[in-house]
Nucleic acid binder design. Structure first.
Length: 880
RNA sequence: GGGCGGUUAGCUCAGCGGUAGAGCACUUGCUCGACACGCAAGGGGUCACUGGUUCAAUCCCAGUACCGCCCACCA
């Protein structure tokens, strides 16, 4: 006998271990089943499961379990990402605490520590994923720095390089002076802050007391100014174009040039140009062939070069700024200081202010690679669900700038490029190969840099299944079916997988990209540690059980809208699990757990035919919802069916039927058992633990018989029964009507009263006979009989053609009954009026489809009939 | 500045051309032998605003307001 409440903790671990041990998560490359593939977005090794992961993986697991049960050979490829810069952050912080840094420790030692850290923290997230009940093919778990995946990175790099899709160039890049590495455009976020704008006077050469004023938020960069630009049409400055100014402090002469970049509306209309320290200025510099002067080193300190006054040498950028301002002030060269709101570029992870910096770096020619990637989506080879996210994708891929992929870090894939003494570069997968290219006696040194983490992630859909080797897995599981991801990495990851896949595989990496919502807190705020509003999925699992957490996330995953997660939803779905548990308990107590040899399509009794029909209908609804990635609809459909249909009606109907013996009761037992078993199957992808536990307890037939390897049902037309459906819906209406009247009239809940029915059709009479027991039990009636007379002081209500009469004048307040009837009639009148307004409208009658008109007419007729009966009831009440 | 979403019951959210839905919360009544994490019956909404299209608009179109996000720019 089951306990009264369901205790998730008691069963979760047991089932998970059993599943995993038995190997049911594994794909089978040799099978002849249709493959179904999902590539898991690899979480960072340093990460721990947050609520967004929980959502992401729950949805993937539902898809995988569903398709596995549908008989497909499911591959859910798991793994983790080495998260180059994130790991650096962790380790560097540690080293800092130990009073050292990575440069003192050295590359080799640092990497040792990185691997240690990876071993230590790497399986935190995968063990947390196990708690979520996810079923990826753990045997195939990959890591982006595995041998195989590293090979793929080398192969991809060389292929791209040989096709000129990777090149090395000196460019202005985003530099993180604390991490001392370049980062990509995407890793830079713009942070708004209060800042100052200084208006600085630059003396014009050859003129006394003539100045041109430039406005800047970064005065320290003036050490590297190589021009002042004004707009060619700006009357204020036209006469100065071609002249020079004497750059204060360094005393260099720099030209005043005309360039449309200069906006007369902004600042003073004249802008200082520092090509080596500003992206826009860089462009201007290119146009005018200006000199580029780097004034900072990799730590963002002023370089010790001759052209810079000695007192600035080695100063960090902030100190340099202050000193420069002081010096300008002392020469009375600051015209004005404004307080403004501006944005500064900050490293996404490090939080450090990013410095535009001239260095030689490796780039991927993403503007070229993006074209086929964009086209593939335009051609519908890959579709985004919901479709609106294609806009975000296009906005990104259609406006690509070259992707800087080299990082001055150590943890990651070292770039497979070697240099000889003259700096000539040799790119190859191995040092031997590079040496071969260079010639025997040439001394080579390898590029120190590693690749951006996203480079290896971009290969994930094929590197994890063997590429560049031609493996059976690659052949079978590529391209994948569905990618499930959050919109925040469409740019970082999805677009890059598309680009690399189109180039290296000549095909899209997946057919569907399902983009799920962001999980926010109750108030709609993004969850973050600093706000302290994070909900830890593991805590929630502890509190409500995995099944409830999964079901909640699924039920709230409506397309295109953020999820605001409120805890009472979790409670509600925890209750749902308990409900299922107790329904099973009821089946157990009533010996309704076996349906061997039972053929649902040959059920004879209407309640059974009806619930069988409903099982089919619910299954189809769930199918349709999952296939369309409408997870919330799937969850609601199964919830509504289990609670609202099976528990609230079918099981209640079964009670009086099971109280008797014989053929009917026997069929009810078998149908109940069958329906419960189907429910467990339908619910399994959503709530794997409780369903597996119940199934194992009730239906298990041999060691291999589990839901996880069970068959998703498909029911033929013979499972449908519209006649039984309308018959049972009539029963529900009758019961509902009587219950409602009883409650309205304050009939004591325990009182059993008689029901008289007047004007019943043959069909109604037959239905009453067939379901008398059920109706009596559920509506708490002592008996139902037919009548032609209405006793005085009776309560009346109308169901279809029949009048239901409750002769209870002695226990109710007749005034109340009059009020009740008046209210019902009033509502009917309103309806009739509305319908009349429509039918009286000539245009409506002319233009509306006939079926709509007929519907209105029949509704009016029904309402009129009902009203006349109720008016009689009122009359009768008045005569008493 | 460009773009994309959202605005529906007290709360969290579905729905989407033909009489407004769910869960939670609320009210009332129930220990009806599965379940009080429950059962039953209720109350509660000019579907943000303004126009337009239509016989008919919560739903389609245009605009307004507020909220959120993405991208770009900021001397």
């Amino acid at each position: 006998m089951l306990d009264k409440t369901f205790d998730p903790k008691a069963i979760e671990e047991k089932h998970y271990q059993e599943w995993e041990k038995s190997g049911v998560f594994a794909c089978d490359p040799s099978s002849d089943k249709e493959p179904y593939t999902i590539m898991m977005p690899p979480p960072n090794v340093t990460g721990s499961l947050h609520i967004g992961h929980a959502l992401n993986h729950t949805l993937q697991d539902i898809l995988i379990r569903y398709n596995r049960m549908k008989g497909k050979d499911a591959l859910w490829q798991p793994g983790t990402d080495h998260a180059s810069i994130a790991v650096h952050m962790v380790l560097e912080k540690k080293l800092h605490e130990e009073g050292t840094d990575r440069f003192q420790v050295g590359r080799e030692k640092f990497l040792e520590k990185a691997w240690e850290w990876k071993e230590y923290s790497g399986n935190t997230i995968t063990s947390q994923l196990r708690r979520l009940g996810t079923t990826p093919d753990w045997e195939r778990e990959a890591f982006t720095m595995d041998e195989g995946l590293s090979k793929a990175v080398l192969a991809a790099f060389v292929k791209l390089y040989n096709a000129n899709m990777i090149y090395r160039a000196e460019r202005l890049v985003n530099w993180d002076p604390e991490r001392q590495t370049v980062i990509s455009d995407l890793e830079v976020i713009q942070k708004e802050q209060k800042g100052k704008m200084w208006h600085i006077k630059y003396p014009v050469e050859g003129e006394t007391e003539q100045f041109i004023t430039v406005a800047t938020t970064r005065p320290e960069t003036m050490l590297g100014d190589t021009a002042v630009a004004v707009h060619p049409d700006d009357e204020r400055y036209k006469h100065m174009i071609g002249k020079s100014v004497i750059l204060p402090i360094t005393e260099r002469l720099i030209p005043i040039i005309a360039d449309e970049y200069s906006d007369p509306e902004k600042g003073s209309g004249a802008v200082k140009i520092t090509p080596a320290h500003d992206f826009n200025d860089f462009e201007v510099g290119q146009r005018h062939d200006l000199q580029m002067i780097s004034i900072m080193d990799e730590k963002a300190c002023i370089v010790s070069e001759e052209f810079i006054p000695e007192q600035y040498h080695g100063l960090d950028r902030n100190k340099a700024r202050n000193k420069i301002l002081e010096e300008l002030e002392s020469h009375d060269l600051i015209e004005d200081v404004e307080t403004i709101k501006n944005t500064i570029p900050v490293g996404e992870r490090s939080g450090v202010v990013i410095e535009p910096f001239m260095t030689k770096q490796w780039f991927v020619d993403t503007p070229t690679l993006a074209k086929p990637a964009a086209q593939a989506v335009r051609d519908g080879k890959t579709r985004f669900i919901p479709q609106q996210y294609e806009n975000m994708y296009f906005a990104w891929v259609d406006n690509q700038l070259p992707w800087c992929i080299s990082r001055q870090l150590w943890w990651g894939h070292q770039i497979p490029a070697w240099y000889d003494r003259d700096g000539k570069v040799y790119v190859a997968e191995t040092e031997e190969e590079a040496q071969k290219q260079a010639g025997k006696n040439v001394e080579l040194t390898r590029d120190d840099d590693v690749l951006d983490t996203w480079f290896s992630s971009a290969l994930w859909p094929f590197s994890t299944i063997g590429w560049p080797e031609k493996t059976p897995e690659l052949d079978r599981y590529f391209p994948g079916d569905t990618l499930v991801t959050g919109f925040d990495i469409i740019t970082f990851w999805v677009s890059r997988m598309m680009m690399f896949s189109m180039f290296l595989m000549d095909d899209v990496p997946f057919k569907d990209v399902y983009v799920h919502a962001l999980v926010r807190d109750e108030k709609g705020h993004k969850m973050s540690k600093s706000k302290g509003n994070v909900m830890d999925p593991i805590d929630l699992i502890e509190k409500y059980g995995t099944d409830a957490v999964r079901f909640t996330l699924c039920a709230m995953a409506a397309q295109g809208r953020d999820i605001r997660l409120a805890e009472d939803r979790l409670q509600g779905y925890r209750n749902f699990a308990t409900k299922l548990w107790n329904a099973s308990r009821y089946c157990e107590m009533n010996d309704a757990l076996s349906h061997e040899g039972f053929d649902p399509t040959s059920a004879k009794f209407a309640p059974n035919q009806w619930i069988i029909h409903e099982v089919k209908a619910a299954t189809e609804e769930i199918d349709k919802a999952i296939e369309g990635y409408r997870f919330n609809e799937a969850a609601n459909a199964v919830y509504q069916f289990v609670w609202g249909t099976f528990c609230d009606w079918y099981l209640e109907i079964s009670k009086p039927l099971l109280a008797q013996d014989g053929e009917a009761a026997d069929e009810v037992r078998k149908t109940t058992s069958w329906a419960l078993s189907q429910i467990l199957i339908l619910l399994n992808p959503f709530m794997p633990y409780i369903t597996e536990e119940l199934y194992a307890g009730f239906y298990k037939d041999g060691a291999d018989d589990r839901l996880i390897t069970g068959q998703w049902p498909e029911y033929g037309a013979e499972y449908s029964n519209d006649a039984a459906k309308s018959e049972m819906e009539w029963v529900q209406t009758i019961v509902g009507e009587i219950r409602s009247v009883r409650a309205d009239m304050n009939v004591p809940a325990g009182a059993k009263i008689a029901l008289l029915v007047k004007g019943a059709s043959d069909q109604t009479q037959a239905r009453i006979n067939a379901h008398k027991k059920v109706i009596c039990k559920m509506a708490r009636l002592s008996d139902i009989s037919l009548t032609d007379d209405i006793p005085s002081g009776a309560v009346q209500t109308i169901v279809e053609e029949a009048t239901l009469i409750l002769p209870i004048a002695d226990i109710i307040d007749l005034d109340e009954e009059r009020k009740r009837l008046a209210k019902v009639i009033g509502k009917l009148d309103q309806d009739i009026q509305k319908i009349d307004a429509k039918l009286g409208n000539e245009k409506f009658v002319q233009n509306a489809p006939q079926e709509v008109i007929d519907e209105q007419k029949s509704r009016k007729a029904d309402a009129l009939a009902k009203r006349s009966k109720l008016e009689q009831a009122v009359k009768q009440l008045q005569s008493t």
